[in-house]
Amino acid sequence: MNRFVKNINPKAPELGSYYLTFGDYYGIRGDVAFAQALLETDYFRFTGDVTLEQNNFSGLGATGSKARGASFKTAEEGVLAHLQHLYAYATTKNLPSRYPLVDPRFHLVERGSAPTWIALNGKWAVPGRNYGQTILDIYERMLHTSIQHLETTRQNLNP
Rank of each mutant, 00 (worst) to 15 (best):
A70L: 05
E77P: 08
K93R: 13
W124H: 15
K93F: 05
P100C: 06
N121M: 12
T74R: 04
R111Y: 14
P115F: 10
R98Y: 07
I118A: 13
R68K: 12
W117M: 02
A67D: 02
R98H: 02
I118K: 15
A70M: 03
L83M: 05
P104V: 10
A67R: 10
W117V: 00
W117S: 01
G69L: 06
G69R: 12
N94I: 11
G64L: 00
N121P: 15
R105H: 09
T74G: 02
A125Y: 15
E76G: 12
L86H: 07
A125T: 15
W117Y: 07
A67N: 10
K73I: 06
N94D: 13
S71L: 06
H85I: 01
K73G: 07
L80F: 06
N121V: 10
E110S: 10
K66D: 08
L101R: 13
T92Y: 02
A67H: 09
A114C: 14
L86N: 05
S113Y: 13
E110I: 03
G122S: 13
A70D: 01
A67I: 10
V79N: 04
L86K: 08
F106G: 01
A119E: 04
N94T: 12
A119N: 11
K123Q: 12
V79M: 05
E76R: 15
L60I: 11
G59R: 03
T91G: 00
A62G: 01
L120T: 12
H82W: 09
L60M: 08
G78V: 11
R98P: 05
T92F: 00
E76Q: 15
P100L: 09
A81D: 00
Y99I: 00
Y99V: 01
T116F: 14
L101V: 04
H85V: 01
E77A: 03
S65K: 15
L101A: 09
L83A: 03
G78A: 05
K73M: 07
L120R: 11
L120P: 13
S71A: 09
A114H: 10
Y87G: 03
F72L: 03
